[in-house]
């Protein structure tokens, strides 16, 4: 999968597993296990596009998303994403999320993704929109 291909927005395209800790209304830590059979995990790794999606799902989970679905909105755009290492299948990741600001249904967050050793593997800032994709059924 390359970054120019559309992302499949739907189950089982879910990476954020559960909230570990809340530090604010929409800030905290989320756990994610990289599963080899998750949709989009090509060649056993989670590429930068999917890491962006993971960050967005983690933020939406903290925003009150349905834990079964892991989200209540979608990634609307990202300002910057830095990937230091591509997480591999079996990696247990933690995603630290901080709310930067919000306006209407849009919210901006910063995120840091770390592996089981606590080593940072990625970071980024991005916007999400709560609710369903406008015009999508």
């Amino acid at each position: 999968m390359t970054s120019v291909e559309p992302l499949p927005h739907g189950y089982p395209f879910r990476f954020a597993d559960r909230t570990v800790e809340r530090t604010g209304p929409a800030s905290g830590r989320v756990r994610a296990v990289v599963s080899a059979n998750a949709r989009g995990v090509a060649h056993g790794g989670l590429n930068s596009s999917l890491l962006s999606e993971l960050m967005a799902q983690a933020a939406l989970l903290l925003e009150g998303g349905d834990p079964e679905i892991g989200r209540s909105g979608f990634l609307a755009g990202f300002s910057e994403v830095s990937v230091l290492r591509v997480p591999e299948a079996g990696d247990v990741l933690t995603v630290d999320i901080a709310l930067a600001g919000r306006l209407g249904p849009f919210a901006k967050f910063t995120a840091t993704v770390a592996d089981g050793d606590g080593t940072r593997v990625a970071s980024g800032s991005f916007s999400v929109r709560k609710g369903t994709v406008p015009g999508a059924g």
Binding site: S79, G101, R102, L103, F106, A107, K108
Partner: peptide, 13 residues
């Protein structure tokens, strides 16, 4: 667009 609006709001803040 709307995402730009959010960025501007953060800038003004």
């Amino acid at each position: 667009d709307s995402i730009d609006a959010l960025e501007l709001v953060l800038g003004v803040e």
